[in-house]
Computed example of a mutant assay.
Amino acid sequence: MNTTEHDWITTPITADLLRGAIELERTAHGTLPHRLPARARAQCADGQLAMAESQPSGVRLVFRTRATAVELDALPTKRVYTGAPPRPDGVYDLLVDGRLAGQASVAGGKTLTIDMRAGTAETRPGPVGTLRFTGLPGRDKDVEIWLPHNETTELVALRTDAPVEPAPDRGRKVWLHHGSSISHGSDAASPTGTWPALAASLGGVELVNLGLGGSALLDPFTARTLRDTPADLISVKIGINLVNADLMRLRAFGPAVHGFLDTVREGHPDTPLLVVSPTLCPIHEDTPGPSAPDFSDFANGRLRFRAAGDPAERASGKLTLGVIRDELARIVRQRAADDPNLHHLDGRELYGPADAAELPLPDGLHPDAATHRRMGERFAGLVFNGKGPFADRSA
């Protein structure tokens, strides 16, 4: 039907309309979804973590309605990198009864200017923008609006031309996943195009994505968040950030992994728990970190990374991806003797040498959109289907 502004119904944006968020913060403008709780955020002053956890990867508005038109007022935070071309606006994905039915972006918003060379960041205010989807089928349906995975988003107002109610519980299992920027969705085309979102869709589960760009660092507060978050299935993808940040040595790594898993098990003693080792990253397979940016073509929007460590430093305990994979496999074998619900997946089964030859990592670290799709399909096939550790064997 045709609508006028007087036909709109405004519905408060409350927790029962949001999925995938760990905590909601009331701001001066509206509601800001977080993927780490305030207690965790207070224990780390790292600006990278603050940015990553507030980017709502996997967070979506979900409701039941007969509305044919939906408006969402939002205040995004746009990232601008000094010396680089403008970044595209974040993408919102509209799903109707589980199928992609539209995509749009919100103009305006705050601006976070990041100078990677200087290591500085500055936020400037900006206006609220409006997203609008029209032409939806005029029947009862489940509507999902997936928020941009890479753009901090404050939700200001939800308007529809018919009443809204929380979508019913479809009885799907909740999959809680933690990983690095690859799990966060770096370089995916849209929020439902990240590999965890794709895998969740194929596996028929509800995703809670704690992929944190630059911040999958075995932090105790992240382990406690996993411990305290309700879930039927849990996976942790460990490794690449520890290398590219050059954060710890082998002596610290093993006990840190054990401690992380111990904490998760405090809240989920029998939940299927999958430890995923790093996907292939040629620059760090045998060369330690840190990763160093190459700005030679940054003005054209192309940033690459190189390994700045020395392979000889492995002898003193510096970590490479090969070392981490071996250690993770050993730890899982050791623990699985007393924990039959603990499982291991070599990340190279998701993206390995043959994939790298066909779909090389554009910047040396992160997969492109096609690779996200391949990884999501691979994960679903290996983990949710057949004899996989998350396969449904209730039938």
Rank of each mutant, 00 (worst) to 15 (best):
T4W: 02
D7M: 01
A15G: 06
D16H: 10
L17I: 07
R19Y: 04
T27A: 09
T31E: 09
H34T: 06
A42R: 15
C44I: 07
M51Y: 15
A52P: 03
E53S: 01
Q55K: 13
R60T: 03
R60P: 00
R64A: 14
R66H: 14
A67F: 04
T68G: 11
A69V: 11
D73T: 12
T77C: 12
Y81M: 09
P85N: 09
D89Y: 11
D93G: 11
L95W: 03
V96N: 02
G98N: 05
S105P: 01
V106C: 10
G108N: 03
G108L: 02
G108Q: 06
T113L: 11
T113Y: 07
A118N: 02
R124L: 14
V128S: 04
G135H: 07
K141P: 01
I145C: 07
I145Y: 06
P148I: 04
T152H: 03
L158H: 07
L158K: 06
L158N: 05
D161N: 15
D161A: 09
A162R: 09
P163T: 12
K173R: 15
W175Q: 00
H184N: 10
S186K: 14
P191Y: 05
T192M: 08
G193D: 14
W195M: 03
A197C: 12
L198S: 01
A200R: 00
S201T: 15
G203V: 02
G204P: 04
E206T: 14
G213E: 05
T225W: 01
L226I: 12
D228R: 11
A231G: 08
V236L: 11
I238V: 13
N241S: 08
L242N: 03
N244M: 09
L247R: 14
L247F: 08
M248N: 05
L250Q: 13
G254P: 00
A256S: 15
H258S: 11
R265I: 08
T271E: 02
L274D: 00
L274R: 03
S277C: 05
S277Q: 03
S277T: 11
C281T: 11
I283V: 10
H284P: 01
H284M: 07
D286E: 15
T287G: 02
T287Y: 03
D297F: 08
G301Y: 04
R302T: 13
R302E: 12
L303C: 06
R304A: 14
G309M: 11
A312G: 12
S316Y: 00
K318Y: 12
K318D: 13
L321E: 02
E327R: 14
A329C: 10
R333F: 06
R335Q: 09
A337Y: 10
P340M: 10
N341L: 10
N341C: 11
H344K: 00
L345Q: 03
L345R: 08
L345H: 06
R348Q: 13
R348D: 04
L350D: 04
G352A: 05
A356W: 09
A357I: 01
A357G: 13
E358G: 01
L359V: 09
G364I: 08
G364M: 10
P367N: 10
A369C: 07
T371I: 10
R374V: 14
M375H: 05
G376F: 02
G376R: 00
E377C: 04
R378Y: 07
R378I: 05
A380F: 04
G381Q: 13
L382W: 11
F390D: 04
S394R: 15
A395E: 13
A395I: 12
